[in-house]
Design a protein around this nucleic acid. Structure first.
Length: 266
DNA sequence: TCTTTATGGTGAG
DNA sequence: TCACCCTAAAGAT
């Protein structure tokens, strides 16, 4: 569940299972976190917040569990102590009277006090989150044109969590395609119309991904692909994973590039 | 039973 | 930009 919208959905599910209830038992697989099991047991969970692609589980006594799923971590919410059959490694479990929140495979787990959050190297650098309702397309446009970012290539900029928190490799290609802007351009090189479209595409695709329960779940897009004979399980993007296939807008073949080991389609 | 790949991220140069 | 880290599943042999 890697990009921002999926992480936010996971945080929502965790929140409804945990918030307002005391965590009767907390389990950490990593030895250096074991001492916190006793500190968190019996403490009420006050919030579960998505911070970009990280999740913060907050406790009434001022402690927080920071977790980042990277590419492979997976949250599961089950009835209390109802463990699934899986070969994955359980890394963190938060149990209350009704539910168990289970985090598998993740390697990036920390416990932080409230006063340590601001100084955290990852949380500290995060840009605005497009899923926060206060963020508008105007904010994105202003950020694109700010001195700090305007000379950066869009290909790199859109993956930089300090620019916008939560964008990932799928959304990068899809946003650039929807805006009709080449990934090698810099904001400083773009027309006002292109900048405007980038702001709107970033906002609408990210929010739609959240509302549709996943980046790949746009029903209109899936239907269009189905009518064109694409197999649903493989093709659920406008450009991503469509190398060599015709562009939906102009018919030219979709191009694939690899930059810093990450696939980019345009 | 290998090797590769992945919606992510860090640190060195 | 690259090498590398992390883990699990898919692909190649």
């Amino acid at each position: 569940m890697p990009e921002g919208p999926e992480i936010r959905l996971a945080a929502d599910e965790l929140a409804s299972a945990l918030v307002g209830r005391p965590a009767l038992e907390v389990f950490f697989a990593f030895a250096h976190l074991k001492p916190y099991e006793a500190k968190l047991a019996g403490e009420t969970v006050t919030a579960v917040e998505a911070r970009g692609k990280a999740i913060l589980t907050r406790f009434a006594n001022g402690f927080n569990i920071y977790s980042h799923n990277q590419l492979y971590g997976r949250w599961l919410v089950r009835d209390a102590y109802d463990y699934p059959e899986t070969n994955r490694q359980l890394r963190l479990a938060i149990h209350n009277r009704h539910k168990s929140a289970l985090l598998y495979s993740a390697s990036d787990i920390e416990v932080l006090r409230d006063d340590e959050l601001a100084g955290h190297p990852f949380l500290n650098k995060l840009g605005p989150n497009l899923l926060d309702e206060s963020v508008t397309a105007v904010d994105v446009v202003e950020r694109l044109l700010s001195p700090r970012f305007r000379q950066r290539r869009l290909s790199g900029l859109l993956l930089d969590q300090a620019f916008l928190a939560g964008l990932g490799n799928y959304l990068r290609s899809e946003i650039l395609f929807m805006a009709g802007v080449h990934p090698s351009l810099r904001p400083a090189d773009c027309s006002p119309e292109q900048i405007q479209r980038l702001g709107e595409a970033a906002l609408s695709l990210t929010r739609q991904s959240y509302q549709m329960q996943g980046i790949t779940n746009d029903p209109a897009l899936v239907e269009r692909l189905r009518r064109q004979g694409y197999e649903r399980s493989r093709y659920r993007f406008r450009v991503f994973n469509r190398e060599g296939e015709p562009c939906f807008t102009c018919g030219a073949p979709v191009v694939k590039d690899i930059i810093g080991g990450r696939r980019l389609y345009f």
